[in-house]
Computed example of a mutant assay.
Amino acid sequence: MNNVHTPLTDAPRRLFAGAAKVAPEMIVSSVPTQLLTAGDALDLIEAHWASDQDQPLGVASINLDHIHHFGEKGAWHGSLGKSMPWLNLIDGAPIAKKARRLTGTPWPRLAGSDLMGPILDRAQAGGIRVGFLGGAAPTLMKLRETAAVEWPHLTIAGTWAPPRQQIVDPAASRELAAEVREANVDLLVVCLGKPRQEAWIEANGAATGARVLLAFGAVVDFLAGEVSRAPQVIAEAGLEWAWRLAQEPSRLARRYLVQGPPAYLQLQRATLGGSFGHE
């Protein structure tokens, strides 16, 4: 596959127009990762769902697992950014540490599980219609119950728990995207796990009619209270991966212990790339 990455759209760029700062990006195994504060990332996401851009915006969390799948040695290398622009945010602690070493500036981890609450705060305030795609049906039901308490004025336009065979079948996926469009979703949270969620968004994002699509993995489990986050001291030490591995060893052992080390070696060759901002 060709390594093509669509630049960010003009609407997010305008947030930095005339500003004194420029948001650089780090290139990790050909994957561009934007270096942003949490506030700037949230502003970019909100600006896009409020814009009249023709293309939707995909948002991905960049960690070693992403590099494994979408980096230069990954099976999905070069598959993203052909049909829509992507905003790639630092997730893993190794990514954040490398960005700090390259720039001399500390950059925060912007994991989907951390951003989801503030994003839903803004969606509720702006009357944005939100949909959740992925996770088990009982989990999505619990998520609705939790959201009704935490965000009582948030409009959840729909939830979908598609089986794997529907996600990997192009025709079935088009039908699913049509269901999302019919529900008039503005912001779609896609939680199918890497690399399926990013691949599904790339192939079907525009057909859903959503303005922003978040590839946020297990965030439905966190919102529903099915999975607990690592204590802050563990997360700050860069050991959240070990916490999650201890919770779900059968599912995560291969990701962290087999696929992670080669991706970490690719990370060491990261460089600073282009910037977006005022011109």
Rank of each mutant, 00 (worst) to 15 (best):
A224D: 00
L89D: 01
R251Q: 13
I234E: 00
V31Y: 01
E182V: 08
I234G: 10
R211S: 14
A171N: 03
W86R: 12
I95R: 01
Y256T: 02
A157G: 08
A157H: 04
L57V: 09
E226K: 14
A47D: 05
L239D: 07
L187I: 09
G277K: 10
M116R: 10
R144Y: 06
R255V: 10
L42N: 01
F276L: 10
I119E: 01
E240P: 02
T37I: 13
G209E: 07
F276N: 07
N2Y: 14
P85A: 15
T9Y: 03
A96G: 11
V130T: 08
G217L: 01
A183N: 11
G134C: 13
A172K: 04
N63T: 14
P170E: 05
S83R: 15
P152V: 06
K97G: 05
T33G: 09
A183P: 05
T139N: 04
E182W: 02
N88A: 15
V185K: 10
P32E: 12
L120T: 01
L265E: 10
R13C: 11
T155S: 02
M116E: 03
A210F: 09
Q34F: 09
P56K: 11
R14A: 11
V219G: 03
Q232S: 10
A20H: 13
P56M: 15
C191L: 13
W243C: 14
Q247M: 14
S29H: 11
P262K: 03
T103W: 03
G273N: 06
E72V: 15
V22Q: 13
R181P: 07
I45C: 02
A263Y: 02
E279G: 15
I119Q: 02
A207F: 07
V220W: 00
D121A: 01
